[in-house]
């Protein structure tokens, strides 16, 4: 009995989000995508989230990640709501994106979170919805339910944070991007704001058990305004170009990125260790203000 219990607890990932084997069909659990999160956008929940974020989460994030935010001025003439799309390397990214947003935008933010990761249990899903304003997004397939929910949120005036890679990069390099963010921007005709985050992969990389302190850079790109008859595919092309330009800007400089984008942000097509090796060492730990 004891052995069986241990086998089940470990094998079925008790206390951890359930994860699907790669070859498993989707959706394995039929309720994930339908997880009800509308309550998390009610005034009381929004106020609770504001308080939690401003008093606990963002101060903690500033302590751990000391984020440097560049390009916020590019948003000064943009009206809400917008669709924000960023690269994704760590669980810290959501907090970093929220921190990077102008103060007045943070109060109406909804975050697209993996249905098969965050919304497999009621407790985890409800916490994600309350603390981050998360709503479920099916990432393993194009889901009409997820798309409809996202479009409705934008139409209701919520800024949407999405990670088009569909999951955290295992080695820090950019993964293939899915067109969901472009689809929503094109559909709602709202601006698509690219963001590039560097550094969180060293603080809390995928699979890490502990959190390190360090320094994080966030670069906000020029908003991309969907043209009148532009469809999602065309917008996606512009978005990917903009994101690559931001990536180049983050490693070199703005002017260089205008002249030539570095096309190797997907990393070398080599073994995992070589991809990690290629990215170089972790940045030095942030200096404490008491040092």
């Amino acid at each position: 009995m004891k052995n069986d219990l241990k086998k089940i607890a470990l094998g079925f990932r008790w206390g951890r989000p359930s994860a699907q084997p790669k070859s498993a069909p989707v959706p394995a659990l039929k309720t994930e995508g339908n997880f009800e999160t509308a309550w998390a956008r009610k005034p009381w929940a929004n106020t609770a989230r504001d308080l939690l974020q401003e008093l606990v989460l963002l101060p903690a994030l500033r302590y751990v990640a000391s984020p440097t935010i560049r390009g916020r001025e590019r948003l000064r003439h943009v009206e809400q709501p917008v669709v924000i799309a960023s690269n994704h390397v760590s669980h810290l990214d959501t907090g970093v994106v929220v921190e990077a947003l102008p103060q007045q935008w943070r109060h109406r933010v909804a975050v697209g979170a993996a249905a098969d990761y965050f919304f497999t249990s009621k407790v985890r899903g409800s916490l994600a919805a309350l603390v981050l304003g998360a709503f479920p997004v099916e990432r393993k397939r194009a889901s009409a339910t997820s798309a409809r929910a996202a479009v409705r949120l934008v139409e209701e005036g919520w800024n949407l944070i999405l990670f088009p890679e569909g999951g955290r990069s295992p080695d820090g390099w950019l993964q293939e991007m899915k067109p969901g963010a472009s689809f929503i921007a094109a559909r709602t005709k709202r601006p698509l704001v690219p963001m590039w985050i560097t550094g969180t992969e060293h603080l809390l990389p995928k699979g890490a058990k502990g959190l390190r302190r360090g320094k994080v850079d966030v670069l906000i790109g020029d908003p991309i305004f969907p043209k009148q008859k532009e469809d999602a595919r065309e917008l996606q092309v512009r978005f990917e170009e903009a994101l690559l330009r931001l990536a180049t800007e983050s490693t070199r400089d703005w002017y260089s990125s205008l002249k030539q984008t570095d096309a190797t942000h997907g990393g070398p097509g080599a073994a995992r260790w070589r991809r990690v090796w290629e990215r170089g060492d972790a940045p030095p730990r942030a200096r404490s203000r008491w040092d």
């Binding site: 069986d4 086998k7 089940i8 094998g11 079925f12 990932r13 994860a19 699907q20 084997p21 790669k22 070859s23 498993a24 069909p25």
Partner: peptide, 23 residues
């Protein structure tokens, strides 16, 4: 039906074991 490839995320698999079962 499904042919599933086992990876580190795959839970243990059920085997019938006469008048009992095992994972």
């Amino acid at each position: 039906g499904l042919v599933l490839e086992v990876d580190r995320r795959t839970p243990p698999v059920l085997f019938h074991n006469g008048e009992n079962f095992r994972l």
